[in-house]
Amino acid sequence: MPFQPVDNRRLYEQVADQIGGLIRKGEFRPGQRLPAERNLAKMLAVSRPVVREAMIALEIAGLIEVRTGSGAFVREKPAEAAEAVNTGHSPSDILNARMLIEGETAALAASRATPEDLAAMAEWVDEMVREHDAGRPWRAADLGFHLAIARSTGNAALVSVVDRLWQEQHAPVFTLLSERVRLSDNWDATLRGHMNILDAIAGAKRSAARDSMRAHLRQVLDAMTGAEKKEPAGL
């Protein structure tokens, strides 16, 4: 197959564009199974998470269908080339950015959080538990917890940045990949991560707050990329 190496700095859209172009040119026939993820990663000189994100983008574009346990197949009637759709930033990039920014935000919160700030954080955790136990979505309370941490720093810009990164998680690729890996089932790890973060901030432990936030987000990243199936989570 006439694949060309892809520059890692150009993200998953470039991989999707190249594979999509080959599908439209007939290099892959309708109904044909695409090469395995690991083989595509090797041929395209990118990581497997990048290929996985590209597959999601191609699925959204109507060019392939992903069959659990079988692989990705070209649709019998692939969609015609259309105007580019904003499928969002790479989920891996979003979560890595959150680790950098929210890790430092948590460390700063450990130095500045007031008793009122800590009470607000604890209330959002309690709200998450109430929503989860009632069988309702708890995403809004999850966001509330992270924004409460950012607000406790006294830096309004950090609040805006944290909120913006969260909104990026509503983009099509992030949303579909989250559903595919059943991220919402990640409840126990999420609650444990939040409690570790809250305990570190309440104890004014900057390093522990930073590490707990990064470990929490690393666990989410590993769940999204499948890394937790191959190696222990860690920084």
Score class of each variant (00 low, 15 high):
1 M>T: 15
5 P>A: 14
10 R>I: 13
11 L>H: 07
12 Y>A: 11
12 Y>P: 08
13 E>K: 09
14 Q>S: 14
21 G>N: 13
30 P>T: 02
33 R>D: 01
34 L>M: 12
34 L>Y: 14
40 L>N: 02
44 L>N: 05
44 L>G: 06
48 R>W: 07
52 R>P: 00
56 I>L: 06
56 I>V: 14
57 A>C: 09
59 E>W: 07
67 R>T: 03
67 R>W: 14
69 G>I: 10
72 A>N: 07
73 F>L: 05
74 V>L: 12
78 P>R: 08
79 A>E: 07
83 E>G: 03
86 N>M: 10
88 G>Y: 14
92 S>Y: 10
92 S>E: 13
92 S>T: 14
97 A>K: 10
99 M>S: 06
104 E>T: 06
105 T>D: 06
108 L>E: 14
112 R>M: 15
115 P>H: 05
116 E>W: 03
116 E>F: 08
121 M>L: 14
122 A>Q: 14
123 E>P: 01
128 M>T: 00
132 H>V: 00
132 H>T: 01
133 D>G: 09
134 A>R: 13
134 A>D: 11
137 P>S: 06
141 A>G: 04
143 L>C: 01
145 F>K: 02
147 L>D: 05
149 I>H: 02
149 I>L: 10
153 T>I: 10
153 T>V: 09
157 A>Y: 14
157 A>V: 12
158 L>D: 01
159 V>D: 04
163 D>P: 01
166 W>A: 00
169 Q>G: 03
181 V>F: 09
182 R>L: 13
186 N>I: 08
186 N>P: 03
186 N>G: 09
188 D>I: 15
189 A>V: 13
194 H>G: 05
194 H>L: 15
198 L>K: 05
198 L>E: 09
199 D>W: 04
201 I>E: 07
207 S>M: 14
208 A>I: 03
221 L>E: 01
223 A>P: 00
223 A>T: 02
224 M>H: 01
225 T>Q: 04
231 E>P: 00
232 P>E: 07
234 G>R: 04
235 L>N: 00
